[in-house]
Design a protein around this nucleic acid. Sequence first.
DNA 1: CTATGTGAATTTATTCACAGCA
DNA 2: TGCTGTGAATAAATTCACATAG
Lengths: 207, 207
Amino acid sequence: MRYHKIPDETVRRLPLYLRGLQSLLEKGQNSISSKGLADFLGVNPWQIRKDFSYFGDFGTRGVGYKVEHLVKQIRKILKLGAVHKAALIGVGNLGLALLAYQGFKVYGFEVVAAFDVDSKKIGKKINNITIENVSNIKTLKKRKISLGIIAAPREAAQETAETLVKAGVKGILNFSPCYITVPGKIKVITIDIAMDLARLPYYMPSC
Amino acid sequence: MRYHKIPDETVRRLPLYLRGLQSLLEKGQNSISSKGLADFLGVNPWQIRKDFSYFGDFGTRGVGYKVEHLVKQIRKILKLGAVHKAALIGVGNLGLALLAYQGFKVYGFEVVAAFDVDSKKIGKKINNITIENVSNIKTLKKRKISLGIIAAPREAAQETAETLVKAGVKGILNFSPCYITVPGKIKVITIDIAMDLARLPYYMPSC
DNA sequence: CTATGTGAATTTATTCACAGCA
DNA sequence: TGCTGTGAATAAATTCACATAG
């Protein structure tokens, strides 16, 4: 099944696999079967095997997968090899949390710049990052920052996105609860945790 | 197409529709077509019509949909009518951000309790919520809190989930980067923002 | 004439079942 | 024998095209 288009759903699951595999690696486990990984992640084995099969022979028949090899392969597929520099726009409550958040670096991301419109915040230093005026966003290209994280109020999100695109970012992670349009091939991923929470009651029994 | 099983993907999109519709309502728009809503949300019109059709006739042919009516219907389907009380476990950086987060109430959620293991934090008051010892989690049922939000370290996540289930919660929102097993029909939704971020480079051009 | 609502067609994803290899 | 890798079968979701109602 090599040389096929990779299903979006497979790409969506790869970070899940990676997260679990890295967790196993920390524990010192260096070999695992599709069944073992499936149980650990709460998915089914054939799904894992099918997903991996799109990329080539990752495992050894009759034995299983080498955890370290899998981690390397998936990181390569997801282009997580290099460190990706990211800029945060909006240093409110959420922005502060994102600055402190340790989960990014597992995937090779590093928040190296922060911007805000509030003059009271500009110049302050948080986690070794000095908050800059949003007018400085245009310097991102020069600083080789290719990722933007929007944690601004909803009203400002679209405008911020456009500024980021002008500054040459290739991807945007949008935490504002709204849809954002960008020109060209820039990828936007919107995360609204309240939206995930909102479908919880639907699935909750007797409620 | 009434009296059909509702596709999970449709349920996943309902909060998106709701978010957009409530945003339109704030703007004072009280009528919209599937095309109009689709453009506003960045999806396609027939998807919206199909999704709505699972629940009955929401609109008027030749005219469109009444925004307020749609909002009411979707809130009803998602069981967001009543206020859902939620408890937060783990008041670290992420936990603090979640306590301050204003996005929950749009969907009728209210974080009314917070717990931590750290004795230095216990007793402190944040946003009118006094941080309690995790041993108090067992009081949740009495306090009619049916939702748990886990913002504890990964190692503690599974144990925390089990404590929450014993305390009678019906749903769990898990922010720890790991899979959680729960007995019975309790619904768990895991949110790991780094996982969404991790598939961004894959879709980014020339990177 | 407009925009919804929905069967039918198409595309996409999941699951199965087993061949193939260590 | 055990577990992977994968074509084939099944299931699910998306898209289309148009009948239908205001």
